[in-house]
Design a binder for these strands. Structure first.
Lengths: 236, 236
DNA sequence: CCGAATTCGAAGTCCGATTACGAATTACAA
DNA sequence: TTGTAATTCGTAATCGGACTTCGAATTCGG
């Protein structure tokens, strides 16, 4: 509430014509320091277990100061989540761009997700936690803001991808682009997040790295999307 | 720690030969009362937000008494989770038993999951939360106990299902039963849990009930599992 | 009715999030 | 270089929620 009172009053006055963003650089640096410490701790201990005290200690910034940057722990979570989601989306987009056919793009996207699962497991786990706990109560504005960034990044074109795929014959003809897109994305993301959450547990029990399991799942899905040799006669 | 001291000492003595399980009935009833209140609250407010005070209030049992039944909130969560998982597994098993071919069984299983998603969304959401937050730190014993129950119930036969399917020609011949089983189960469960978590949000945005999205996802997966016409064996 | 088992209540501990606020420090404009 | 606004520090305090303690009151079964 009374967060940046100092800035909002006195500084606003000065800004009227003089030194724009005087302390901004420093503020930005501090902000990053806090976010980085928090992100690491969330990864290591889970966003529930990670305590404010730990975060402040790790960031080297006192608690009372942290609250001048973020009004509460949730704020920190949101901020990190937005960044993480946006980055993931960007990676997916980049991956998809490298492929030719629609089917190829989808495959590339799935492969990118598999790599995230292998190399950024903690981050994926973090996203899983977030989905499970916060997703339902996202304030609409946040959601919109996030989607805006992500849309530019990749997911949004997915529907078009399916439409294209049906058109160019690489995907089966009986697909409803909109429905299929959401269904497949949710299945892929769901599988990825779940595997990240179960992680080591699954690996210990079944010997395979979880990203292999994910790859097999996406292989099956891709097979399901692909056009039959004799597409057109077949309906389920 | 000092939970059931009364029972462990005085009553243990009596049990030596006399009134076995005297107060058991009542105790069991109380236990249920608490669990039911907790389950409802977890569904309504999430297992994080639901407070002990709320649970005790809703159950009509005082806090100090509740702690004679469960040593802490986590205990309650575990207990409910075990029941919920076991029930879900039983439903799946029942569903699979009604079908003939392996592919049919898998389809029936997926349909049962879709129905759970439609009719027990809160419960599925609950399982999603649990997976995301607790799965990594399940004590092994708990896990074993749960798996024992679930195995009897359904998941365990899934691998056999795939092997059978490959043998009877309803599934494509290049599947690795063990790998595919885990991959597909994780994809299905992951999709189901994710859709339950996002729930209304998804429905509002895209007009379709989430169970339809799930059905489409499983349709695609089933298509991916199904044997090609020219798989070398007869197709279904 | 007796005695064990259970519940109640109320007070209290512990811990983590968050706040309040004055003193100390830092950045920068003049 | 210096005065002042902006920022940080420390520390004490509040608050809510999980969990405990324990003696008094109540309930159950024989």
């Amino acid at each position: 509430m009374s967060k940046s009172f100092g800035r909002d009053t006195a500084m606003a006055k000065r800004n009227t014509e003089t030194s724009r963003g005087t302390y901004e650089g420093h503020r930005e640096r501090q902000r990053r320091r806090i976010l980085e410490a928090a992100e690491r701790l969330f990864d290591e201990r889970g966003m529930e277990r990670a305590t404010m005290a730990e975060i402040t200690a790790a960031s080297g910034v006192r608690a009372s100061t942290v609250y001048q940057y973020f009004s509460n722990k949730d704020e920190i979570v949101w901020t990190i989540v937005e960044g993480v989601f946006a980055e993931a989306a960007a990676r997916m987009k980049a991956a998809a761009e490298g492929a030719e056919t629609a089917l190829g793009k989808i495959a590339a996207l799935a492969e990118a997700m598999a790599e995230d699962l292998a190399q950024r497991r903690a981050t994926v786990r973090f996203m899983a936690q977030f989905d499970a706990m916060y997703a339902r109560e996202w304030p609409a504005e946040r959601l919109i803001a996030l989607e805006a960034r992500i849309s530019k990044g990749g997911f949004a074109q997915f529907r078009k991808l399916i439409r294209d795929g049906v058109a160019d014959g690489s995907l089966r003809s009986d697909l409803d682009a909109n429905l299929t897109m959401h269904a497949v994305m949710n299945a892929l993301i769901g599988a990825q997040r779940r595997l990240a959450s179960l992680g080591d547990r699954v690996e210990k029990e079944y010997g395979k790295p979880v990203d292999d399991l994910f790859r097999e799942a996406s292989r099956v899905i891709l097979l399901g999307l692909r056009a039959d040799k004799n597409d057109g006669k077949r309906a389920k």
